[in-house]
Design a protein around this nucleic acid. Sequence first.
DNA 1: CTGTTAGCGCATTCAG
DNA 2: CTGAATGCGCTAACAG
Lengths: 352, 352
Amino acid sequence: MRVSIKDIARTAGVSHSTVSRALNDSALVSEATRRRVKHLAEKMGYSPNTLARSLVTRRTDTVGVVVTTITDPFMSEVVKGIQLAADEHGYTVILCSSEETPEREMAAVEMLRSKRVDGVICIASRIGALYLDHQERIDAPVVIINNHNEQTGRYPFTVSVDNRHGGYLAARHLVQKGDRRIAYVSGPAAVNHSSSRDRLGGYRQALIETGIEPDPALVVDGNGCPDGGERAFEALVTLREPPTAVFCYNDMTAMGLMHAARRASLSIPEDLAVVGYDDILLASYLSPPLTTISQPKIEMGQRAMRMALSLMSDEGASKEMSGTSEALVQCRLVTRASTVGRQDKNPRAVGS
Amino acid sequence: MRVSIKDIARTAGVSHSTVSRALNDSALVSEATRRRVKHLAEKMGYSPNTLARSLVTRRTDTVGVVVTTITDPFMSEVVKGIQLAADEHGYTVILCSSEETPEREMAAVEMLRSKRVDGVICIASRIGALYLDHQERIDAPVVIINNHNEQTGRYPFTVSVDNRHGGYLAARHLVQKGDRRIAYVSGPAAVNHSSSRDRLGGYRQALIETGIEPDPALVVDGNGCPDGGERAFEALVTLREPPTAVFCYNDMTAMGLMHAARRASLSIPEDLAVVGYDDILLASYLSPPLTTISQPKIEMGQRAMRMALSLMSDEGASKEMSGTSEALVQCRLVTRASTVGRQDKNPRAVGS
DNA sequence: CTGTTAGCGCATTCAG
DNA sequence: CTGAATGCGCTAACAG
């Protein structure tokens, strides 16, 4: 039988409100009864019913997190950052996975709404602009990680890296290294998924700045997964003029591409230089270790959570005031052996 | 302003109980009013308050999942399986991360209790036997993935692979290949974490069966992460008689170890054969691709969730009846180039 | 400092 | 088929 404050009130010989006060360290109870009540609660194995509490306080101390798939190392890291910041502030995380489909993402948000979460964080959302409507419906702040809105240019609340800059850094690195035919393997195609396009934009800019005419044939489709990278490689090697370097949407893609290249007996970086994006843990353990654009994943998660926290506290006030806000975090180039000589002899160069 | 069934009752000109019935498809409402109410609810942007509902139904349709760290690919995959099975049955997942510390794990369970989850699933728990007490306190079924209890030999409800068999398969493979000096790199040390010890047991058995005397010097500590594998390598190469093959607690460890070996200019598998455990996605993309013991991670998650589901429905009855139950899932050896010749020429052999 | 009273939003009797 | 009344466990006034 579950014990409630009523039960402990009865056996303590006080009213249930006194118990409530004691348990919540209200100033309106004598030190004596507080101790007695707390001791009793402990002894009786009491566990506060947060459902009941939330019903009256109108706060659940819970945030919903929506990912496309938890399996992606990038996602896991960001989620970890969210988790850390969350339970640092006594918040709980409800995790939802959209499995890449917009419908499931919508369903997840709706479910979070009915669970009355205090806020929601979406990573690499697939429904984009629709959130603007949802944000009104859900009556809780929504912060988005790594998306920009097509229409307005950005969501009300976002944290993201400067993807364009990242793409620029990657391509410029290759150019400086001497490559002229540099390919780009894109990420998952999705209407409102701008990160790949932004990286592509930076890549183009770097080429043009150096007087290289971007060749559309060198831009091929990927899907953010290793198999996409493998297919991209096949597409690239069959070109009349194959690239000497490839910039991949992310590390997973690069991993697949490198695997395919090795199977084709190409050596990296001699025959083909490769740059990834994300700097996931395994990047430095690949052979050769992967040059990549590092994103502060944990930090991004923390930033997003903190942003949500502040929106949840000041709510109405600052929310209406600022109206919109965007946190840009820094990304940086981490140079490893997949683009330059025998650097993996020196493991101290490993980033992350 | 949030709209409740009262609101929609008022504007519909009926009582709120009628609205409740209509929304829940009770047979006790005319088809006409049901439609009218539902239409209205939709129009008014109604979202059922699950908190209130759960307060009376005493069910939250929520399970808590406790992991040590979501960053580990093995964990992510299992969680994904749980997710899939969960929302196939309309359940929600609350994710907690213990960050490897028992205290946080206890805190997580306590928090889940106060959120009144209908069940909890723990992956690679670090507090072991203590769960037996908790299971009574929490008043909800607890199923454990990949642990055995030291005292009783097993937890009340578990799903796990036969770690001993997996270890046996790995070592036997190396023996058959011709190796005699075979090392083992252990997993994270933890009082109630039996998986590493079981794998070690199977490894020993395979050696002994073949007439090889297990050499304690060949068993070194790891921590389940790449850096642990790197350190283990250093320990092993400095041995008077270094091993010619290594069986690692998991793929992450193997990844680190291979990295260190490459830096030391050893070639794999010629100088050193390596076997991992888990068969995470990247295993087949490493260079050379990693031979490993494959666990059906998604399936394990699904099994655990289904087990929890059945415990939650029949509760009292079957729970008391069966008292305890353990699901064993199959693991298998996936042979790749880290132990045998130029097999990576044939990518079709890739498992997972 | 403490007890009494309300009510959060909903499901569920019990009477019609 | 429908409405009125009750209570889930808790916090928050409001009176003592």
